[in-house]
């Protein structure tokens, strides 16, 4: 049976070892007495030093365009709006006076595409369900601002980012997306500009 007090003392030993590990001289002392130092300071001093995030790190979606900002991949099919779990996406399709969809580069396009940062939970469902790979996840995370109904609602202009940017932040994923798009293009080439996947006139969300 252990003596009363040894448990307390061994706990104090662990804490003291950790204390020494955080100082360079303490690590020297530990090595001298034959203890291998393991953990040092683990704090990342945030505004000065930023944590290195993994490549797949995701935060807040953005809209991808090819070459020029008017050539965006989004066709305003509203699948993401419908599937978005917290319902933070709002899309209105661009239509002319007669109510027919306006086409640009052979595709319909959204007139309004708003995402509310304060509601979005960065879950990536919109990216997973998008049949056109038009929406992707960003990795900037310093989005705080004071305007709840102004700056925190991201409109189409602020959401648009180039394909090159997507390639620069998620190179691996972008390569996969490019492959998929190329395959789709090859398949769709014989039959003219019909839409794969869901039809543009998807029903409005059930709730």
């Amino acid at each position: 049976m252990a003596l009363i007090g040894t448990g307390v003392l061994s706990g104090m030993g662990v804490v003291f070892k950790t204390f020494l590990e955080t100082y360079p001289w303490g690590r020297v002392v530990l090595r001298t007495v034959g203890v291998k130092p393991t953990n040092g300071l683990v704090t990342v001093e945030y505004p000065d030093v930023k944590q290195q995030h993994a490549e797949r790190f995701r935060y807040f979606p953005f809209l991808v365009y090819d070459q020029t900002p008017d050539n965006l991949r989004c066709v305003a099919c509203r699948i993401c709006e419908q599937e978005c779990p917290p319902q933070c996406i709002h899309i209105i399709m661009e239509k002319d006076e007669q109510g027919r969809p306006v086409k640009n580069h052979g595709r319909t396009l959204p007139k309004v595409f708003d995402i509310d940062t304060s509601v979005c939970m960065s879950c990536r469902i919109c990216v997973d369900v998008c049949p056109f790979d038009a929406i992707e996840m960003d990795n900037t995370y310093e989005l705080s601002s004071e305007g709840r109904f102004t700056e925190m609602i991201y409109d189409k202009q602020r959401l648009l980012k180039s394909d090159e940017y997507f390639h620069s932040i998620h190179p691996e994923e972008a390569a996969v997306v490019d492959q998929r798009l190329a395959a789709k293009k090859a398949k769709a080439a014989p039959s003219a500009p019909s839409q794969p996947g869901a039809s543009p006139a998807a029903p409005p969300p059930a709730i």
């Binding site: 252990a2 040894t6 448990g7 307390v8 706990g11 030993g13």
Partner: peptide, 12 residues
């Protein structure tokens, strides 16, 4: 190490 800190600690 965690157990050394906690398991035999008399107070705990």
């Amino acid at each position: 190490e965690f157990e050394m800190l906690l398991t035999d600690n008399e107070i705990i």
